[in-house]
Write a protein that binds this DNA or RNA. Sequence first.
DNA 1: AACCTGATTGCACAAACGTGCAGACGGGTC
DNA 2: GACCCGTCTGCACGTTTGTGCAATCAGGTT
Lengths: 333, 333
Amino acid sequence: MTTTNDLPGADLAGDAPLPGNRSRDALRAAQMYYLQDLTMNAIARELRTSRSTVSRLLSMARATGLVQIQVNNPSDRAPALEQQIRRRFGVEAHVVPVADSISDSEVLDRVAIQAARTIGPLMDSNAIIGVAWGSTLSAVSHHLTRKQTHDSTIVQLNGAGNTQTTGITYASEILRRFGQAYGARVEQFPVPAFFDHAATKTAMWEERSVRRILDLQQRMTMAIFGVGSIGSGIPSHVYSGGYLDREDLETLETDEVVGDVATMFFRADGSHRDILLNARSTGPDLDQLRTVSRRICVVSGESKINGLRGALAAGLATDLILDEGSARRLVHA
Amino acid sequence: MTTTNDLPGADLAGDAPLPGNRSRDALRAAQMYYLQDLTMNAIARELRTSRSTVSRLLSMARATGLVQIQVNNPSDRAPALEQQIRRRFGVEAHVVPVADSISDSEVLDRVAIQAARTIGPLMDSNAIIGVAWGSTLSAVSHHLTRKQTHDSTIVQLNGAGNTQTTGITYASEILRRFGQAYGARVEQFPVPAFFDHAATKTAMWEERSVRRILDLQQRMTMAIFGVGSIGSGIPSHVYSGGYLDREDLETLETDEVVGDVATMFFRADGSHRDILLNARSTGPDLDQLRTVSRRICVVSGESKINGLRGALAAGLATDLILDEGSARRLVHA
DNA sequence: AACCTGATTGCACAAACGTGCAGACGGGTC
DNA sequence: GACCCGTCTGCACGTTTGTGCAATCAGGTT
């Protein structure tokens, strides 16, 4: 082909420059491209613009949630792994296919993209969404696709401050992106991840500013979180980021903690009674978390397997999004 | 580009040739392509196959309904035309964007594609779908995308025989395609479009074989039909295809008929009382049709505008899929 | 009017994609 | 074993799509 690109001599019969033209064109283009199978060139002619503009209109249509693409495995014959996980652990599994040859950070990225797209369709109006923070959630938040909703709220699940920073910029970035993608209010939780003294927590928990957040958490319709894991390979953010001192880490060990969800710790059997640190943690009580009707856990990387097992034993999740490698480890052992 | 195509030296580490490999790969490919934004080349590497195979896997995934693409106009700021139609006529309108420069048959084709894709997501298990026949429905039936359902039934809305043929091959092809796309049973209605004598209809309507179909029609959860139109330009199939003789056409005129749905006629004001031909027609009683909870009317081409107005006045449709030109004519007059 | 600044456009090129074709494979038949 | 026929594969090629860049436009400021 000799690069007879774009439109040759159009743009002579100008369309009225109507208001809101941009997004109207995006909708038209999307309909013609995805519903009528026209090529971008054909669409460009009908829209009296250049093909490259159509390409951009379409990518805008995708980014703003105007176009939604779903991949649904006909549940009756879903991949074996997902079925096994559902049977063994009682959660709806979404296994992200990845070759085992790729790097951990790439796996995280791909799990995050797919998680973001899986969450999208579940997002609803009038929802109250609890969101944790951490490297997993951060990755997810970068790939959310827009979807307009009314009267929904994003609420932070646990404080993010530590001894060095208030953690606000990090956690709030995550929340902000969620809020923006879904057109939702954002409610931050401006407390440290852990109090130094359990008594301070008790006191703060009586404050009305805090109770407002706790109240929202109680009414959550959906919660989204990763897991932290102790004991195999790389420790998660919480265990190395200045949130806990040496003494804390020792008590975790004596309490036989294997992991955490939103800085609330649990043991391999799923129990969380009498784990000292939880009395100072600002995460949601795990019994309360279990009352939320949709609880989505995102996990990437096999180093999290111990924490994940604990979380599953505790029944913290209703939906589990994880990479294929971890899924395999989970069932084959 | 120097055509550095497809994978250079793969296919040495063979994967196990598992059963059902094909559709599993299609699912994996679809997830990686649509959910993770990998290129087909990258997918080919992970799947240990060639890029072209991935391309084919993906088009298979789309064709079998594994991937579903939706374009949703955020109803609050839907295109003006759709809003006006909804207000004026009380139906949910889906306007198919087409430039006014293209030919009638092309318009029909594009309306049909978009109609097929619009119907797809509405299709459900345990549904009983009534389907009419005619050039519009025929076009739609060619573009249905597969979607597996359980225990659903496609039932023919009106007989298709005429004096020359039993009409079976034509109408049944349409039904067959619907049935195949949705994995549904197909129930044909083996009667002529019109009886010569109303008495024959009365008699036949008591036959158990016919009652079975009528019973299904009574329990329809969805109906899909076009409209026939008299009086402007090209007459529809029914008016020229050997179904009616001159005398019949004359009675239609004296009865002030403007169009039909599934060979049941109505006037411009939507009424259908005392239209003689209806007593001999095998289409569903219009009062009964109105009890179906979802009634989708597909219209392409401005020549149908008169019939369409009548059908809307009669309140026959809950959803209307039509081309932009007709939509404009509909509101601007 | 002159000037800046950010958004938007079309172009040119490179990357990604779809598909006709010929060869390879599989399994049934003579 | 030889043969046939339908299916699947990779290749080559042409087509379609994404994107950096420079020119242009819109609207606000000096």
